[in-house]
């Protein structure tokens, strides 16, 4: 039996358990929807935002940020908590007793992130279009950018999540460690707070982490021309996004491979 066949079997099982877990459904899958609704309701009284000539509704501004947040939650938060719990409650130990390769296990996790992350993004776009009446881009070039930022961002997030799962000392502490970290990243990466309102030193710090780049990529797709002047160096800097995410992908991959154990390391 090949690594890929078992990986496919894992994807099916992983996705099934994801949708049966109420905590994950709320804090990972539906969280961006909740935040989009809250921010849209809270700030819509301010009217349209943006540089002169390129004003958009507050909902339209938040949509790309929430898609980026969804990528981070589906990958980093979901897997870091999920795998730490599986290590704590014996799920991993049991899988480690079977002829399942760790690679197939990784494929299952990344596949789960892909299926659920894609569904989440599609539903966010649908909700943005149908509920908030946001105009979605029509140029094919924008959707090409969307596709590669989405795929690169999701794979990177998944690998960083697998790597992070080695940190919590117990399954129970996983949510306490991971959720605040991820929340902090969302505040400083231009997801909850408008990116150009953040001080430049905070922007610099955010630039060390992948979410800032995913969010920037998504803004380049969904915000109209003219908004790029509010970015660092007044540019969408797609090349910078690709490089930053590629570096994090490699870091995540290496750390995942090095730190992964079916059981806790010997004392």
């Amino acid at each position: 039996m090949s690594i890929a066949t078992l990986g496919a079997a894992r994807i099916a099982t992983e996705t099934k358990t994801y949708f049966r877990s109420p905590d994950t459904l709320f804090f990972t899958f539906f969280f961006p929807f909740v935040m989009l609704a809250i921010f849209t309701a809270a700030f819509s009284a301010q009217g349209e935002v943006g540089p002169p000539g390129a004003e958009i509704t507050i909902g339209a501004y938040y949509l790309p940020g929430m898609i980026a947040a969804g990528i981070l939650l589906s990958g980093v938060q979901n897997l870091a908590v999920d795998i730490a719990l599986e290590k704590g409650n014996g799920t991993l130990k049991r899988l480690g007793s079977t002829p399942l390769s760790p690679m197939s296990y990784f494929i299952g996790k990344i596949g789960q992130v892909f299926v659920t992350g894609a569904l989440q993004a599609a539903l966010l776009l649908l909700a943005g279009r149908l509920v908030l009446g946001i105009e979605l881009p029509t140029e094919p070039g924008k959707w090409v950018t969307f596709a590669w930022v989405f795929v690169l961002g999701l794979v990177t997030s998944a690998l960083v999540g697998i790597a992070l799962s080695a940190l919590p000392r117990s399954g129970k502490s996983a949510t306490a460690v991971v959720i605040p970290t991820v929340l902090l990243l969302q505040f400083m990466s231009g997801v909850y707070l408008q990116w150009n309102m953040l001080p430049s030193w905070l922007q610099e710090i955010a630039g060390l982490f992948p979410l800032k780049w995913i969010a920037q990529g998504m803004r380049s797709v969904f915000l109209p021309e003219g908004w790029e002047v509010l970015e660092q160096n007044e540019s969408w800097n797609l090349a910078g996004i690709a490089i930053a995410l590629a570096i994090w992908l490699v870091v995540g991959l290496v750390l995942s491979r090095v730190t992964f154990r079916w059981i806790r390391r010997d004392a």
Binding site: S21, N89, S97
Partner: peptide
């Protein structure tokens, strides 16, 4: 070729 019944675990049991 092995079968392992571990000491009882606390898996979430969603399946």
């Amino acid at each position: 070729r092995l079968g392992i019944v571990l000491q009882s675990t606390g898996e979430t049991g969603l399946l």
